[in-house]
Each structure stands twice: as C-alpha cells, then as structure tokens.
Design a protein around this nucleic acid. Structure first.
Lengths: 207, 207, 207, 207
DNA sequence: TATGAATGAGCCTTCATTCAT
DNA sequence: CATGAATGAAGGCTCATTCAT
C-alpha cells in the first residue's frame, strides 16, 4: 500500500508540475500559444512523457481551466466569509466588493481565460446570470446577503434581490475585464475607478 | 469607365467575401484559429489568391477588427444623437443606455473580438478608461452629458463626472460581455437583467 | 510593311525593357532572387504580359546571360583593338591587361553571373581553357599576339603561347573574381593589387 | 555509458547524413536551390525530423560552409607544413603551389561554395586580399615564406612581398575556379595548364 | 496588347501525437 | 518511467504559369 500510495503521490506531483508549467506559459504568452513541446521543454522533460499523465493537449487545457476556476472561486469566497471584525453593513459591502475586484484582478490573465470561456463545461462552473444563481454561486449568494443586510431590500422579492446582485456582479466583472484589457492605465486612475465603482454600487445596493 | 467600375466592384466584392468568410470562421472558432487556408477552403478558392486581395493575414485581421470597430461605433452614437422627441432626462438616459446595450449585443461576436482585443492598435480606438476619455470617446462624452442633465452632478467636478461615466460604461460592458458568454440564457432573464441594470445605473447617475 | 516594322520594333523595345529591368533586379538582389512578378512590378506591367515576349523565366535568364556575355566581350576587345598610339610592346601589354581587368570589374555582378555559369549553353561562349581557344576567343587570341610581340616567345611553339595566354587570362580572372567577392577592400589596396598583378604578368609574358 | 555513446553516435551519424545529403544537392543544383524538403525527400525521411537535428535551414547551410571551409583550410596547410625532404627552394615552391591547386580542386564544388561566398561571416574566414592578410591567413603567410626563400625578394619590403603573395594566390584561385567551371576539359589540357601556371608563378616569385 | 484572377506547387517551420527502446 | 526518433498535418507565404477577357 505504501508503495502504491507513493506512486500515486508522485503521479499527482508530476501532473501538478505539468499543469503549473502550462499555467506559467499561458500567463506569459496566452493560451493560444501553449504547446506540449514548450511545456516539456521548460520542465526539462521530453514531450512524450506528458502523454503518460494526460490524454492530450485538450485534457491539459481543460484541467488548467478548472484549476483556474477553483482559484478564482476560492479567492472570492474565503475572505468575504471571514470579515475579521464585523463593520457596518455599508463597510462590509464596500470591503467585500473591493476584495472581489482586487482578488479577481490578482488572478491575472487566468481570470480572463476562465470567465470569458464559453464552453458548456466551463460555463457550468462560471455562469452567474441564470435564475436561481444565488443558490448555486457563492458570489451571487453572498451579494444577496449583503443586499438584504443593507435594507433597501424591504420592497424587494427574492427575484429582485437576485437580479440586483447579478447586475452588481456583472458591473464589477465589466470593470475587472476592462482594467485587464486597458492594461496600461496609470495606477491612480485604476484606483479612482475602483473607488468610484464601489461607491456607485453601494448606492445601487442601498436603493 | 463602366469596365473599370465593374472591375473595382468585383474586387471589392471579393475582398468582402474574404472578410465575411473570415468573420464566420472567427465567430465559430475564435480569432486565434483563423487561418488563410481555412478561409480559402471555405470559399472554394486556392489559398494563394487571398494574397491578391490582402497583403497577408495581419492585414485581414486588421480589416476585420476595424470593420467590427466601425460597426460598433456607428451603432453607439447615431441613435443617441437623434432623440426623436426629447423626453424627460430620466427617460433619455434610460433609452440611451438601453440602446447602447442592445446595439452592442446586436454586433454579435464582433463586439467581443474588438472590445476584448488588447493590442495597442485596437486599444487606441477602443480604450475608454483613461483620464480625458470623455473628450476622445463619444460614448463616454455622451454619458457625461446625460449625467450633467440628470442633475445629481451639482456637487461633482468634471473629473468626477467622467469617472462616473466610465463606471457606468464598464458596468454596461460587463453585462454585455456576460450576456454574450452565457449565451443560452432564456430571453426573459436577459430582458429582466437589462431592465434591472438600466434602473440601477439610473440611480447611480442621479446620485 | 511600315506597320509590321513598327510592331516588330515595339516588340523588341518591350523585350529590351524586360531584360533591362531583370538586369537591374539581378544586380540588386542576385540572380537567385529574380522573379517574374518583381520584373513586372517594377515595370508597372502585369506579370502575365511577360509571357507574350518570353517563353518563361528560363528564357529570360538565358537572354540575360547572353546579353551580359556580349557586354563583356565587347568591353574587352574594342579598346585593345584601338591602341590610339602604339606604345612599346611592354606598355601595350600593360594597358591591355589593365583595361581587361578594369572593364571586367566595371561589368559589376554580371561578370560573375556570366563567367561563373557552367551551363553548356553559356560555356560555349565563355570557355577559354580548351586547346585552340586562341582561335575562338578574342581575348586569348589578343593575349597571344601580345606574347609574340614581347619576344620571349622565340623558344615557344604555338601551343605554349596559348597555354601562357590562358594562364595569364585565368590569373586575371582570379583577381577580378576575388576583388568582386572581397568587395569591401580599401581603394588603395585594390589599386596596389592590380598594379602588382600587371607587373607580375608582364614578367610571365616576357619570360 | 555504452548506450549514451551509441545514441550520441547515432545522432552524429544522422547529422552527417543530413549534411552529406545537403552537400549532394548543393553540388547538383547549387546552394540557392537547397531546400529542407528536398533533403528529407532524398533521405526518405519526413521534413520535420530535420528540425530535430538542426535548428533550421540557416543552421544547415552554415554547418555546410564551415565544414567546407575546414576541409579547404586543412587541405591547404598540412601538406605545406610537411615538406618531407627539403628540396631546393624552387622545387619547394613548385610542390607547395601544385598541392594547393590540386587540393583545392579535390574539394569539389564545396570549394566554390565557400570561396565565392561573399557573406561577411564567411569572408571573415576566407578573405585574403586585405593588407595584413599574411598574418591572418596561413596560405598567404606560407607563400610569403616561399617568396623570401626564393631570394628575388632582396629589393622588396614586406608590403611588396605580401602583395606578390596575394597576386600569386589569386592567380591560382582563378585557375582553380576556371577549371571547376570548365569542367569538361580533357585531362591532358588540365595538366598542361596547371604545369604552365606553376612555372609562370615561379618566374613571378623569383623576380 | 495587356490585365488581373486563379491555381498548384513549393518554401520554411511548428506542432500534436505515436512508438520502439 | 522516460526518451528521442519519426510522422503527417497544418500554417503563412511566394512564385511560375495559365487563361478569360
């Protein structure tokens, strides 16, 4: 058993090494330029060996996207779940949204790769606009909680809350993508935009 | 002259056919998979002939993007410039924003190709987040006008107005992209999201 | 008749234009890079028309070489045949050889193209080393005359004179080619080499 | 180790096979017509494999030239350095020059490829006409030694000796190239020309 | 006479993938 | 487990040549 376990572990380690290396290359040159050979070359392995650990290039790309998705998800939810010190509802919202934006930007190019991918397989993990998303997506669910906490929600039914959360989420998404596309903006302008965005969304949330 | 005209026309027709075919392929498999050979194959022509009409692949891609860009631009400005009957400021804003969203969506995949392209050449036409964008981008400039009209602007300086316009623009951008990625949403949900978005942005604009 | 003549003349003019243009291109980029399209482009004609005047690329190249050969030949013989003022036999030889070298260099790249071409067709015009060349090649014949004039020939039979002429000719040829290959030599060095060469060959001729 | 060695050897063998095949093709159709595909085709391999052994076409051509260059160099220097039995200065010169000519001719087409190549990279190894070449080129240096030994040098300064060596070298070069271009000369004529050339150059050297 | 459309072959190169070892 | 040889397809591009007009 010990032997089998070790083998299993080594296999997993190799798979991770491959994925990590692939990730680096994607980050550097974009997913379209990714090639098995380049992965192997950077790992100082031969190209053939990769086929012992993955079925082919598609397999690797798929795993990469899923992994990317998990990073994104975990990056989003964990901090929000731990508001070290409960602040006012306003500030809770501000902090959660800001963190959402900053964490997403921090993901780098992977965020774009994942969130702009429209293959059904990926979308089943990343879709947020369908009715009922608040149940399936932590991010939307969390936003709904914030909205309820902020009170302007008295007159709203559940559907309305969810729609508002989706609108806020996609607004943030737009800013994140835009900042990633217009990648040469001065730091100050980026900050100003994020701040103005958060304030604007707070107004939406309160209304 | 008639002859020359006909020739010129045929030449233009061929160029358009090539661009259209390229457009199809891009819509189907993404711009990265576009290849001269595939264009020719789908047109039932030999690959070489394409070099009679374009200088190379780059040329084609560029034309494709510019064409896309021009559609987008014209889609944006013209309707807003013709508010058939001046309505209330509120409704003006609602209508302009809704049209902006719908027109962008109507562009189809080309909108994504253009607006997510981060090459400097394209960005010089599509960038909207830098300081001073209200002077260079009709869309931002128009939004600024709307914001001033809506009054909540009393306390705002010019910079603030621009920032708000940029925040609203990128929020709409996020929704548009999201709707294009999550392309299988039910019609009703799409409508609900757009409506909720417009109302939310109105609140932002008035505030 | 007048009409036919005119046509014939125009046809010849066009052929010459094509050959001249091809010659330019060869001089600029080497014969290997010559292409029908580039000829046509530089002439501001379409590529197809060239096939009205020549059978194909090979045809053009062949004509070009022959023309080049004729330039070379005419360059060589005419000045030597007109020693304006008869000098001493020594100086006659010096002048003839120097002119041979300078004229050949003046031909530019065409000299190399022609004289290094080893196709039978070209060789039948440019070969100088076979027995009896003094009868068929003006250059060798002329050198033989000079050798006889210079006297050291008393002890030589005809074959020996021809061999000596061929040795001198190929020695000059070697210098010419070398100067064309080592194209960045300082002017002074070139002159020094030519002078030393001529003096050396004079010694050979006198001996 | 045995295994590694074998692999290394096989790799080298393949590289040599490629270079040899390339050499054949160059000899047959000239270096300008050389193509990766043709090399592979003649080897009964696929074109791609060649990129396992060489970085690209340029790499192959370079190796080919260097190989040719080294053959030429080694052919030149070694015999001259081993005058088995010191003969008279006259005969030393005769033997050295004859060997130089015969060895160069023995190189076959490669000699032409190398010595007529005017790219700076190659010229830096093959240039012989610049001032000071006697220090950098064994062939010229050796000729200078011979010239000094032959005595006629009393009245010559160093520059003059070098120039004479260069003139003799380029004369031999001319004969070599000419014999390679006029490749169908009868054997006897070739021999007669070489002999006459050597005698003529001896006169130059002695004078 | 002259054009421009069109083709098919060829070029160099990269790549995913397979396989014997 | 790991390698390196090998292939076949694909990609961008240039070219000689043909042909209808």
């Amino acid at each position: 058993m010990s032997k089998e376990q070790r083998q299993e572990q080594e296999r997993a380690a190799m798979r991770n090494l491959i994925l990590a290396t692939a990730g680096e290359l994607v980050a550097e040159h974009g997913i379209e330029k990714l090639s098995i050979r380049k992965i192997a070359e950077r790992m100082d392995y031969s190209a053939g060996i990769i086929y012992h650990y993955f079925q082919g290039k598609e397999d690797i790309v798929e795993q990469l996207l899923q992994q990317g998705y998990q990073n994104i998800i975990s990056g989003l939810t964990s901090p929000a779940q731990q508001p070290a010190k409960p602040l006012s509802a306003d500030n809770n919202f501000r902090q959660a949204l800001t963190q959402f934006i900053r964490m997403s930007i921090a993901q780098g190019p992977q965020y774009r790769n994942v969130m702009l991918n429209d293959s059904p397989a990926v979308l089943s993990h990343t879709g947020v606009l369908d009715e009922g998303a608040s149940q399936k997506r932590n991010a939307i669910g969390l936003l709904c909680s914030h909205l309820r906490e902020l009170g302007g929600t008295a007159s709203r039914n559940e559907t309305d809350v969810e729609l508002t959360a989706q609108v806020i989420w996609s607004a943030a998404f737009g800013l994140i993508i835009r900042l990633s596309v217009e990648k040469n903006l001065p730091e100050e302008q980026r900050e100003a935009l994020i701040n103005r965005h958060v304030e604007a969304m707070l107004v939406v949330a309160q209304n």
